[in-house]
Amino acid sequence: MTDVHAPANNRRPAGHSPHTHSRARRILSRLALLAGAFAFLFPFYYMLVGSLQREPDSSPAGAFPRPGNLSLHNYAEINSAISLGRSLINSGIFTGGVIVCTTVFGLLAGYALARLHFRGKGSTFALVLLVQVVPFQLLMIPLYVLIVRDYGLADSYIGIILPFAINTSAVFIFRQFFLQLPQAMFEAARIDGAGELQILFRIAIPLCKPALASVVLLSFTGPWNEFLWPFLVTKEQDMQPLAVSLANYISTVSSAAANPFGAILAGACVLAAPAVALYLVFQSRFTSTDLDSATKG
């Protein structure tokens, strides 16, 4: 049957369902998918083309690049306005700090919650669940008061990193991953007299690469794209991550510029590129099995 709803691996060759009918439907569903892909990808294409045009052209013809109109002028312009290098370094430190803290402490917590029995495990897990439902908007004011006012951490990397340092979703991913590993492996090591630290360093950590990949992607995109919190904490342009300095350019500087879109789009490309590139690399490296099941049917 050529049922569009059935999971890919349960499908069988076309049977007694009416062929012409289901073919028409299949074409319809393909068209919907293509229209969707166009709607999702076109803005990115337009972002890139617009950033390379000396004079951004908003007419339909402007969607197709003309060699005469292409230049890197917009990138130079946004660089002189917000100092791309400095902003990228700030974004990198913010993101790097979050990745390191999340990986180290998230792995420890996820491993313990999955594989160890200790007092307080149940309540720890309940707390992890509670954190997931506390929305950031409720914490915005108290965190600002504590971090910026009481601890004086405005315009500092620690102040930017702190509320994001350990990502709770990463704790979940690590826990889920370690739960899947066979219990026998851990029991055997314990019977052989291995200590818990030895088991962690010799068995658990070497095995956790697949979970690490999704954790790194998750803890990269979160802080790299974050706007609200670093916007609240940083007033000095020297300390602002790229998302904040570009947003400030959009909301203030651009109104004074004659044709601001070229520079905005150039900044947007620089901000978007690392996250998209990282996702594409991870996507091709870690979902190849997915691809197989889709192509073999």
Partner: peptide, 25 residues
């Protein structure tokens, strides 16, 4: 399939600030 799924996911992993720029345009 992978192409479509990737295409649909790209806006989600991109910074709001970046895509806001294109939408403004």
């Amino acid at each position: 399939r992978t192409f479509f799924r990737t295409a649909y996911y790209v806006p989600y992993i991109t910074a709001s600030v970046a895509v806001v720029g294109v939408w403004l345009f």
